[in-house]
Design a protein around this nucleic acid. Structure first.
Length: 414
DNA sequence: TCTGGGGTCCTAGGACCC
DNA sequence: TCTGGGGTCCTAGGACCC
């Protein structure tokens, strides 16, 4: 029998815990990070039904004494990194999932540091003592089960799943504990009379696949029997980079979407240039007032990372969406995403393919000139701050719901 | 009273090639 | 008159995760 060596470590109510650490008068109180929208809530606030993404107004209704705090974004990054670094003291096999969460495989570390349970206890004690933060850890033979165990361990706990008792542990839990079961799948399973993982495991795999689709069905059957083949991966790179902006309700006019698209394109293209990872496919998403969303994509013959080139393509795609939906006069969100990112390469030919591409050689020259201009701008902003320079259009007053500093916390490494 | 932002993966249909 | 089969790429939409 294998032993349980996979840890899943997850900082509890991370942003809210950091705020309570920085200002101890907030300890024990219902607090929310954010304002217009709740970005994170303390456990005391969660008890009132408050969760991330909830409109601030609604949160105030649910909990009149809720305290809103502005985010200390640099501290989130610093403390999140520090907590992961504690894990890395005990094994190099660490897979970071987000700012506040990571898997670690401690197989082969027993001689040096003790059993997986002992390592986890040490990590929890050190994160508490050195950083002042609560962190929950689950330990199991597979990533999936370790992740479930850490959720069960919360808040501020440790759960070890004995390899001999895996299915007893797993099958008693409701299906929504499975990775990949959200509201829709949960409802579909409920209609079929399945509400626990044990009930799911007993269904014929073919029936589950008919219900949920081939891949999702096969995956859930495997997970219900704790067949999770994934290893801890220390280096995962992003496959896409995007940005979006919720607009409330705005007219579907060029005056509205041109500056927004330029700002989004600028945010994305800067990241692509920074990591030398231009992308070939540009996808745009337009959400209308009724929350219905439409996407349009275009794949280019060569990858791009110039702000202007990306913005021009996004503008053409959005114009196409609005042409196809002439009845829609109000938009509530715009998004751009770039995928098919190339591996880092020294030389890129930036071709500004417009929808009507006119001539390769002049186009390539124009693209290179744009890339050079962008890189000069990047250098200025790196030295003097983001406000120092930028495209005039991106500078036009946009009040955004979520500060850029917070957005960057969610970015994956490219 | 409307519902943030950054990602991943899957499906289904069509185009195109061999 | 009828019309294979597999593989790959692309687009649009949807579910899900943190």
């Amino acid at each position: 029998m294998d032993t349980a060596t996979i840890l899943h470590a997850d900082l509890d109510a991370f942003y809210a815990s950091v705020e309570q650490l920085l200002d101890p008068s907030l300890l024990g109180k219902a607090i929310a990070v954010g304002g217009g929208v709740v970005l994170a809530a303390s456990y005391e606030a969660k008890a009132f039904g408050i969760y991330g993404g909830m409109p601030g107004r609604r949160a105030r209704e649910l909990c009149p004494h809720l305290i809103f705090v502005g985010g200390h974004f640099e501290d989130y990054r610093r403390l999140g990194d520090a907590a992961i670094d504690v894990l890395r003291c005990y094994t190099p096999s660490v897979e970071r999932i987000s700012i506040d969460e990571a898997f670690a495989d401690v197989a082969g570390c027993e001689r040096l540091f003790g059993s997986p349970r002992a390592i986890a206890e040490t990590v929890r004690a050190r994160v508490r003592a050195e950083l002042g933060l609560p962190i929950s850890i689950g330990i199991a033979r597979t990533k999936h089960l370790a992740k479930i165990a850490s959720q069960v361990a919360k808040p501020d706990g440790l759960v070890v799943v004995d390899p001999k008792a895996e299915l007893a542990f797993l099958h008693a839990l409701p299906v929504e504990h499975l990775w990949g079961v959200g509201p829709v799948t949960k409802a579909r399973l409920a209609e079929a009379g399945v509400s626990t993982i044990g009930e799911l495991a007993l269904r014929a795999p073919a029936a589950v696949q008919r219900l949920l689709g081939r891949a999702a069905g096969a995956k859930l059957t495997a997970l219900a029997w704790n067949r999770d083949p994934r290893d801890v991966e220390t280096r995962r790179r992003a496959h896409s980079a995007g940005a979006q902006s919720a607009l409330g309700r705005r007219a579907a006019s060029e005056a509205v979407f041109l500056p927004v698209l330029h700002h989004l394109a600028d945010r994305i293209a800067r990241r692509l240039r920074e990591k030398e990872r231009p992308g070939r496919t540009v996808t745009v998403r337009v959400r209308f007032a009724d929350m219905r969303a439409v996407t349009r994509a275009r794949t280019l013959p060569a990858p791009i990372s110039a702000t202007t080139a990306l913005a021009e393509i996004a503008v053409e795609l959005v114009r196409g969406v609005l042409r196809d939906h002439p009845v829609e006069r109000t938009i509530s969100l715009l998004a751009i995403s770039v995928s098919q990112l190339s591996e880092a390469c020294a030389l890129q030919l930036e071709l500004p393919f417009g929808l009507a591409d006119d001539g390769l050689l002049p186009g390539a020259r124009k693209g290179l000139a744009r890339l050079k201009a962008d890189k000069a701008l990047d250098a200025i902003r790196a030295r003097f701050g983001d406000g120092a320079a930028g495209y005039a259009r991106t500078a036009t007053g946009l009040t955004r719901a979520v500060p850029d500093a917070f957005r960057s916390l969610a970015e994956k490494e490219l």
